[in-house]
Design a protein around this nucleic acid. Structure first.
Lengths: 230, 230
DNA sequence: GATGCCACTGTCAGATTCTGGCAGTGGCGT
DNA sequence: ACGCCACTGCCAGAATCTGACAGTGGCATC
């Protein structure tokens, strides 16, 4: 196994363990000496991987994605740049910032001439359609979805009636003018769509909901096959 | 200089020369022997770089972007996935396909568990707002922008009057319901916006327009500072 | 068809890099 | 004080990379 393959492997092993892992354990799994492991960790950190080591504990990899070297065509890069610019114009500030950061990260590693080309990418996104009346932080919803946590909130349905609900969120839909949370509603015991601008007093809980996000997403999609809304 | 650095250098050198370059020249620039150069080329090709060698001519790198290993946070990947999904829903078929391809390329190099996570990314894009009446191929415009070529077309302005024009396209704006080409109009001798759904009989020419795309983009942006439309 | 140019491959000794073991430092909690 | 562990410098042996040489085959020119 070549060195670069081993480095990718190391990242995968770190991903699997969420708790800190001792260098000795890692060295064992990779079948190299502890000395080499320290060198590998240093190399990865040098490449920007957010690995942290604490004496007495071990190593932890902060959650994230490591992409190996990758080749894109002009059109593929244009598509990614355009898409990220669109996301950057969304009202969800954290997601918007992430899109900007991602582009900046890509630009940072590119040679100068390609960076200019990125900047000059001729695809632009128009302004978003007027101010949104969402008064909640979509970041909280995305966070809850990632962690598979229940959410409590007040919701005002189309008829204007309000209610407090506990839901299991698993998707977020981006429409032209409105964002919609898709969740299992404990009250209705069914999938429900919640327009973000009708949600108030949102709070993510620490309670994990009992089903897997990906499974619920699949089931919900199946129920949509006829209506085909998202 | 380490081997991996040299490989990146090699790609940059190939990028600079658009004509085929002989292996001997490349070896000279990298300060390695020709034998090593052949090995490096083989390695890059193995990593997916579209390098082609022709006996009697030399090597050419097909245009594209090579990204070195890169680390993204969860939110940054979510932003890229969401953005690409949005682009994939755009009516421009080639760009839409490129977005899908880009996502597939990223998914292909990811370990299985991360690939699943990508698929299960909980951010969805709503359907586009009804059928577009564009009867031209936006891909032709994007191609002309990249190559800095003039375009000839018929255009029907807001008042309904039609005219045949030659324009220098340098940007493409994506709004909620309509796409707009931004170009220098030879007829008006000024920047003009052209709604894609009012363009017909579009044809890219082989004539290169006399100014740089990036410069025109900058100038045009300056004229917008007050109105702030894109 | 001979010649020149060039991509491309196999082989092998020597240069270079990587690796493992060892010794030692320092932080942290028991 | 002790154990645990991250982390560093050093050095000899292992693994890899590199350069030189020899040779094949495609293509165009003379």
């Amino acid at each position: 196994m070549s060195r670069s393959e081993r480095l990718l492997d190391l990242i995968q092993i770190l991903r699997r363990h969420r708790r800190p892992v001792s260098g000795l354990t890692l060295a064992g799994e990779l079948d190299v000496s502890i000395r080499t492991l320290y060198r590998d960790i240093a190399t990865l950190q040098g490449q920007g991987a957010p690995i942290e080591g604490e004496p007495g504990l071990g190593y932890v990899l902060k959650p994230g994605f490591m992409l190996p070297p990758l080749m894109f065509t002009d059109e593929e890069i244009e598509a990614i740049v355009l898409g990220s610019r669109w996301v950057a114009k969304q009202p969800d500030t954290r997601l918007s910032a992430a899109a900007t950061d991602a582009l900046a990260k890509i630009a940072a590693v590119l040679p100068e001439d390609l960076r200019d080309e990125l900047d000059a990418t001729a695809l632009l996104v128009g302004p978003s359609v007027g101010p949104t009346r969402e008064n909640i932080d979509l970041g909280v919803i995305r966070q809850a979805i990632r962690a598979e946590r229940k959410i409590e909130m007040n919701y005002e349905d189309a008829s204007g009636a309000g209610s407090r609900r506990t839901v299991w969120p698993f998707a977020l839909g981006f429409f032209d003018k409105v964002r919609v949370m898709v969740a299992w509603c404990e009250m209705r015991q069914d999938f429900r769509h919640f327009r973000a601008d009708r949600i108030s007093d949102l709070a993510a809980t620490d309670t994990r909901y009992p089903r897997r996000r990906a499974v619920m997403l699949k089931e919900w999609r199946a129920t949509l096959d006829t209506t085909r809304k998202l």
